[in-house]
């Protein structure tokens, strides 16, 4: 079983005390998020015209270090773009992301503090944060979907792997993370490795096919054809499905 074949799973509203929460697991990563807000801001976080988005990332083991600070800054700048922060001046929207499980790489020594960037976990963090924000009913301009793509050179040919495992990330030629809004705009692009602009473009196409697959207009032939031509999970559909399930179960209250 490879990571690419697993389907994402999500549960919305798992924490009773938080305004909104979500649990998401995909490709070996499990993340739980809680969202509180808009709440009153402390003096130093207060902004006269918009809400401050406060993101905290907690690793599965140990305390957060420089790598988590970097992830937080990426998430903070991306999420404050899709949240309607102008609606809540002088307040804070607090997002806490707890990493519960991450796949292990048996080829390297396990160290608590790994300073290098963790590309593969970024999509899981973004997806969980978006689900939790939806669960907290925070007004947003758009939702976001994200995915990680790795390019691996085997023999003479290059191969694209969706949702790479830690070992695949380590041995890959290049690793890319893309996030798109629901308006098909590129929200976040992080790439590392050794690649050309053309290769980046190809990875972009692959990621866009996963994150921004158009909604099938009607049941039938068109949908079947879609499934044949594109591989990988359909993130936007998954996000919609997770919320639909939650709403349906909430309505069924008797």
């Amino acid at each position: 079983m490879t990571a690419a074949t697993t389907t994402p799973e999500a549960a919305v509203g798992v924490l009773p005390r938080a305004d909104g929460s979500a649990k998401y697991s995909h490709a070996g990563y499990t993340v739980t998020a809680s969202v509180n807000g808009p709440i009153e801001a402390q003096r130093r976080d207060e902004h006269a015209y918009e809400a401050h988005v406060d993101v905290t990332v907690r690793p599965a083991a140990g305390v957060g270090a420089t790598r988590e600070r970097h992830l937080e800054s990426i998430l903070q700048s991306s999420l404050s773009q899709i949240i309607l922060v102008k609606n809540f001046p002088r307040s804070v929207i607090q997002i806490v992301l707890q990493i519960e499980d991450s796949p292990e790489n048996d080829y390297v020594n396990t160290k608590l503090v790994q300073a290098s960037l963790n590309f593969a976990i970024m999509p899981a963090l973004i997806q969980t944060a978006v689900l939790a924000l939806l669960s907290a009913a925070v007004p947003m301009r758009a939702t976001a979907t994200a995915t990680a793509v790795a390019t691996v050179r085997q023999g003479g040919a290059t191969k694209t792997i969706v949702d790479p495992s830690p070992r695949e990330v380590e041995t890959a030629q290049s690793v890319h993370v893309f996030a798109f809004t629901s308006h098909d705009e590129l929200l976040l692009a992080e790439s590392e490795g050794d690649f050309t602009v053309k290769e980046w473009d190809d990875s972009y196409e692959t990621a866009k096919a996963i994150c921004c697959r158009p909604e099938p207009t009607k049941e039938g032939i068109a949908m079947v054809l879609d499934d044949e031509t594109t591989a990988g999970p359909d993130m936007r559909h998954f996000l919609r499905l997770a919320m639909e399930t939650k709403v349906a179960s909430d309505l069924y209250w008797k």
């Binding site: 990426i74 700048s77 991306s78 773009q81 809004t181 308006h183 705009e185 590129l186 929200l187 976040l188 692009a189 992080e190 790439s191 590392e192 490795g193 050794d194 690649f195 050309t196 602009v197 980046w200 473009d201 972009y204």
Partner: peptide, 25 residues
């Protein structure tokens, strides 16, 4: 000789799309 890209980091907005990033190279 050939231009190799080692890293791309783009965050914090939706203005820069695919074309602008390609041109940025």
């Amino acid at each position: 000789g050939e231009t190799r890209v080692k890293s791309i980091e783009k965050q914090g907005g939706t203005v820069l799309g695919r074309e602008l990033i390609r041109g940025f190279a």
